[in-house]
Write a protein that binds this DNA or RNA. Structure first.
Lengths: 198, 198
DNA sequence: TCCGAGTTTGGACTGGCAGTACAACATACG
DNA sequence: CGTATGTTGTACTGCCAGTCCAAACTCGGA
């Protein structure tokens, strides 16, 4: 699995829609070759088969998310504000790449069995949240909770499932606006909670 | 796909661990036949191939969750209390069936392409939450939020991802206790939020 | 201009496995 | 009994991922 020439990489994206639609199993290597215009032999020359295609596509998306979230997380505002920014950032990237998202969900099992990707997912989605939660307690902008690990995982789940579900509905005319709308709803939930105040 | 005799049904569960471990693709029909002791021909007589096995197993788990959540949701306490009970109920069933959970995640894509199951998932996991949120506004135990659909989806995500992640760590000695612990963390998040007051 | 290393491609081939076909046998029930 | 329904072993088919290979093509350096 060497580095893929940019030209091939860009053409490979055309396979994402196919995989999102039918799953990796339902997608023949020959189909991928056809829609991307990259001959089968060339795909095998560069990539490790079908899994390799998936791995390349998702690895690429994870980089994008990691980048966007990284920027959001490293500002100098308080942790609460940065948490909100991180939510927006993650959702924006997800909604900008609905097909990749759907491919990700659809073949989650396979992804989970690609150790390299598992680590990347953890580092990209989960860890930044966990860190922000701790920083928020330190700077006083977030509450100390009894079980930070569980809470971090839940926050991660709230954002991710909301994003995936929105992405699954298909391409959006204005991903940024939809991301902002979703993020507002999620922030309202995870910051203020649902209980009425006594 | 007629109704499966109870004896076969119970033996089929032995396949769940296999599928959870390797994914449905990594699992040969002959492997399933071997671990369950049900001959291949018999499997095909009753079920619609590999997908049929998965569909049967997950359909069964969904029934369990639906039942437990249904009970929790239909008490006569206020909606906030019932929401907490529903969280516990869902997590309990999930942690009692870690292999089914893992099989579910692993082959989410396939599940999403089985229309019958998609509907069941929605009705089992998502709708009760959505309903409780509305009832809580009515009885004053939960806050009115700007975007109830997004919030319901996020709550669903928080519970489900926390449960799946716990289930993925393997079988638990005391699923009920762990479910209670997780549920406490999640309730703290979704009811009270993370923001500091003032 | 020529060389050689890396890349690209078509085409043919292999092996594994899902799913099918079917006949023989079991069991149940009127 | 006898008919319907379930159970099973075995043999077979067809599909498709992945492999192999030889012929071309690209391109930078000598």
């Amino acid at each position: 699995m060497r580095k893929l020439p940019a030209k091939l990489a860009s053409r490979l994206y055309d396979a994402a829609e196919l995989i999102a639609e039918r799953g990796l199993d339902g997608t023949k290597i020959d189909d991928i070759a056809e829609v991307t215009g990259i001959p089968k032999a060339t795909i095998y020359y560069h990539l490790d088969g079908k899994n390799g295609v998936l791995q390349f596509l998702l690895g690429d998306m994870l980089d994008l998310v990691a980048g966007a979230v990284g920027v959001a997380v490293s500002g100098d505002e308080d942790a609460r504000t940065r948490l909100q920014a991180a939510v927006v950032a993650q959702l924006s990237v997800m909604l900008e790449h609905p097909f990749l998202c759907r491919a990700l969900v659809g073949d989650l099992g396979r992804v989970a069995r690609l150790p390299e990707l598992t680590l990347a997912v953890h580092a990209t989605f989960f860890e930044p949240i966990e860190r922000l939660l701790a920083e928020g307690v330190a700077d006083g902008s977030l509450r100390q909770v009894a079980d930070p690990g569980t809470v971090a995982m839940s926050v991660f789940g709230a954002i991710t499932i909301a994003g995936l579900s929105a992405a699954a509905e298909g391409p959006h005319d204005d991903p940024a606006a939809d991301a902002a709308r979703l993020a507002a709803g999620i922030s309202e939930l995870i910051l203020d909670g649902l209980a009425t105040r006594g």
